[in-house]
Design a binder for these strands. Structure first.
Ligand code: FES
Ligand code: FES
Lengths: 166, 166
DNA sequence: TATTTAACCAAGTAAATTAGTCAAGTATTG
DNA sequence: CAATACTTGACTAATTTACTTGGTTAAATA
């Protein structure tokens, strides 16, 4: 079973996107800034999210990504599956053959567990996450810190230097 | 979050033990034979299971391992935790600090998921697993194939050779 | 008492996976 | 055409997994 940072980053990024994509496409650089996720890594993840049609991309200046579906119809389970392959907990990937071609003692247990996890994740929509109080708090905190202008690393150094001079 | 073969092997081995430990201790070599798990790997796992008092060991000839608790009071979650450290799905290990010391957008989601998984695994006892029809089927199949005598690899070769001669 | 049995223990290791980086593109806008 | 921003693929360091090797120690039995 896989649930690693890859999946967690993907859900976090999609939630960020859901909050900020009302006024047109959001560039990955912004999400990277806000959520502390490496830009190149986000690129990889969104490439997969686009291939599964969870997001749409707009190229060129002013471009970025938008959700390809309403937040209330976009479920966490889909996002994880899109980047993480599968959430299956069996060793045999459902083929019932992990003990030399035969079903092992615990196959059904893991199958059952996988179903429960899938049910849970597929039942929670982005919309639902957006409405949680604690998520709103975090977003609020991030809006305070977040600069409306996108700052490159080079520019940041310049600004820091300027501040040091003051 | 971790749920790998390590945890799966541990549960399978413990279930095998539950089925066969009525007449005294079961040596790991038998479990290894029946469940196709490397003996040395089983030793590592059972070392951890013993340290958490889920099993007791008897050394010397006729020795082996026994369950240290009734199957109805021994839960799958405990076994996995004993060998696998934790089933926690958060990135921050519950510390709410994975985004540079602060709580990330999705912390509560993973916390919630972890709770669900724990609940599920801690609610299923070995006893319950033993009573499932499909598990009984697999055990039955294994008893047919299983030789009552423990055969070393060397002896196996000899037997195979003998059969070839016939 | 010697031998066998089986638990116990410590290291090492090959393969896989993760979480990225880096570099060279291509498409779109102004 | 130049700047912006997405796209792609290859590469990498660190970590984890699933083992193996090579022993030592304790108990029973011949
Ligand atoms: S997990 Fe499917 S057969 Fe073992
Ligand atoms: S998972 Fe806990 S703060 Fe991000």
């Amino acid at each position: 079973m896989k649930l690693s940072s890859k999946g967690r980053y993907a859900v976090t990024a999609m939630l960020d996107l859901a909050f900020h994509s009302k006024k047109g496409p959001v560039p990955l650089a912004e999400i990277s800034e806000r959520q502390d996720i490496s830009l190149s890594y986000l690129e990889q993840l969104f490439s997969k999210l686009r291939r599964t049609n969870l997001v749409a991309s707009v190229r060129g200046p002013g471009g970025g990504y938008t959700l390809n579906r309403e937040p209330e119809n976009l479920f966490v389970g889909e996002i994880i599956q899109a980047v993480n392959e599968n959430i299956d907990a069996t060793k045999c990937s459902g083929k019932s053959d992990c003990k030399g071609g035969e079903k092992c003692l615990t196959h059904n247990l893991w199958e059952n567990l996988s179903d429960r996890i899938s049910d849970f994740l597929n039942q929670i929509s982005l919309q639902e996450l957006m409405q949680k109080r604690d998520v709103k708090e975090v977003v609020g905190r991030q809006s305070c810190y977040q600069s409306s202008v996108i700052v490159t690393d080079l520019e940041k150094t310049t600004i820091d230097t300027k501040l040091n001079v003051l």
